[in-house]
Nucleic acid binder design. Structure first.
Length: 205
DNA sequence: CTTGTTGTGGTTTGTCTC
DNA sequence: GAGACAAACCACAACAAG
C-alpha cells in the first residue's frame, strides 16, 4: 500500500439560491461525493430568520445526517451535512427542502448531487505494466502523467461559471427588471457558444 | 488506543461498440 | 453475443484527531 498525502479532500461548499418557488444550484460543478462525507451547504434567498430548514433526499428519506439548520441573516447553513445512502450508478439524488414556517413550504432541488461509496476516484492504473515505459526517463518526460481531473477542470469550471452567471442574470432580471434588451442577450448567448466552441478546438481541453 | 476519515486494490456490474 | 471500458461496491490499510 502506498503512502497517503496528508491533505484531506474537502468537498467545496454547495450553494443553493431560492428564486420564487425555484431552487437554483449555483455549484453544479460539485456533483459527486462519497457516502457519509461531510458537505457544507448554504441555502440563501428570501428566507425569514429563525425558520427551521430541514433537507433530505427525496427517494431515500432518513438517509441524511445533520440535516437541520436555522435561518440566520437570510441564509441557512449546514456545516456538517452527510448522506448515508448512495444514489445508484449514474444517478443523482433529488433534494427535498422543508421550511418549518407558517405556512410550511417544501421545495425540491432536482439532481442535487451523486453519492457513491467511493466518491469521485482517479482512474485505476492498469495491472499489466507498459514495458516500453519502464525505466525510461525520456518516455516519462515525453508523456507526463496527466491528472484527469485537473485536465478537465478548466473547462468544467468555465461552464460552471457561465451557468452561474446565467442564473444570477435571470435572478436580477426578475428582481430589478431587465438588465439587457433582447438584442444584447442574443449577442451574449452567441459569444458564450462561440467561446465554448473555440475551447473544444483548443489544445487545453 | 480508539474512532473516524480517506486512499487504493480487487471484483462486479452496466454500457457501448463491433 | 463478445470484448473493452467505465463506474460502482467491498474490504482494508494508513493516517489524523481526541
Amino acid at each position: 500500500m502506498s503512502s497517503r498525502p496528508n491533505n484531506k479532500r474537502e468537498v467545496p461548499m454547495k450553494k443553493l439560491m431560492l428564486c420564487a418557488d425555484k431552487v437554483i444550484d449555483l455549484t453544479r460543478n460539485v456533483n459527486h461525493i462519497r457516502t457519509n462525507q461531510k458537505v457544507k451547504l448554504q441555502i440563501s434567498g428570501n428566507l425569514r430568520d429563525s425558520v427551521l430548514v430541514r433537507i433530505e433526499p427525496l427517494n431515500s428519506p432518513n438517509s441524511a445526517k445533520n440535516n437541520e439548520a436555522l435561518v440566520k441573516n437570510g441564509t441557512a447553513f449546514f456545516s456538517n451535512l452527510r448522506f448515508t445512502k448512495s444514489s445508484g450508478r449514474g444517478n443523482k439524488i433529488d433534494l427535498k427542502i422543508y421550511f418549518d414556517s407558517n405556512p410550511d413550504r417544501i421545495l425540491v432541488c432536482k439532481k442535487f448531487i451523486k453519492i457513491t461509496r467511493d466518491g469521485p476516484r482517479d482512474r485505476k492504473k492498469k495491472m499489466i505494466p507498459d514495458w516500453n515505459s519502464i525505466g525510461s526517463a525520456e518516455n516519462e518526460a515525453a508523456s507526463p502523467a496527466v491528472d484527469e481531473n485537473s485536465a478537465k477542470w478548466p473547462y468544467e469550471k468555465y461552464v460552471s461559471d457561465v451557468a452561474e452567471f446565467g442564473y444570477y442574470l435571470e435572478y436580477y432580471n426578475k428582481v430589478t427588471g431587465p438588465l439587457f434588451n433582447e438584442q444584447q442577450l442574443k449577442q451574449i448567448v452567441q459569444i458564450w457558444f462561440l467561446t465554448i466552441f473555440l475551447f473544444f478546438l483548443s489544445p487545453f481541453k
